[in-house]
Amino acid sequence: MQTYDLAADGLRGLNATLQAQSDETNQTEWTIVNPRGSHAIAVGLDAPIEVKVMGSTGYYCAGMNKQATVHVHGSAGPGVAENMMSGTVVIDGDASQYAGATGHGGTLVIKGNASSRCGISMKGIDIVVHGNVGHMSAFMAQSGNLVVCGDAGDALGDSIYEARLFVRGSVKSLGADCIEKEMRPEHIELLRDLLARGGCDAKPEEFKRYGSARQLYNFKVDNAY
């Protein structure tokens, strides 16, 4: 296992070192100590490595991730796992605003709460939040799954396209064009897998599903130019 002291050796060195790992690297386990809320920790990774961050992080941790597993043993600042392509990011604590924004793939697990705009413009990422999500979560979500084991804040799924939203607790309000939808057997199965991958023991039957009513501008053929 490799250990990197961020306080001693700096952020550029860390990201350059992690980004230099190839698909065949033998250095598959990394531990980052002294993150101290730094920005942009472990961004742009593209190798099947495991990175543990021993503390809380600032803006944009694990952004643009491919293949790698990044596990934050603390809380994450704004924009964690932004634009993730594949791989897994796990946050033991809370995540600040726009967690998993624009993510194309991979899995983001937040064991605490996520704040506002979680999964904004998500494009295929799976996000599992053990706690609550704040307002405007899944705003303009296009594809992928957002699972919320707690409650959702105001305007969930505003202007949503084709993502699926599963919420176990209450939803303070639904955004424009977002509606509750039927939970069919295939959704139960999908959710069972998502919960297992997120390390969550909630029962899929306890959730409600929300998605697009497909009534907004883009979906109406009559609105075409």
Binding site: R36, G37, S38, S56, G58, D94, S96, S115, S116, G134
Partner: peptide, 22 residues
């Protein structure tokens, strides 16, 4: 404004840390 402003406070590792609600 950011967590890194707080990291040198005494006992921050044991503090209750949260984001104030809107």
């Amino acid at each position: 404004s950011e967590y890194r402003a707080l990291v040198n406070l005494p006992g921050i590792e044991q503090a209750r840390v949260w984001e104030p609600e809107p």
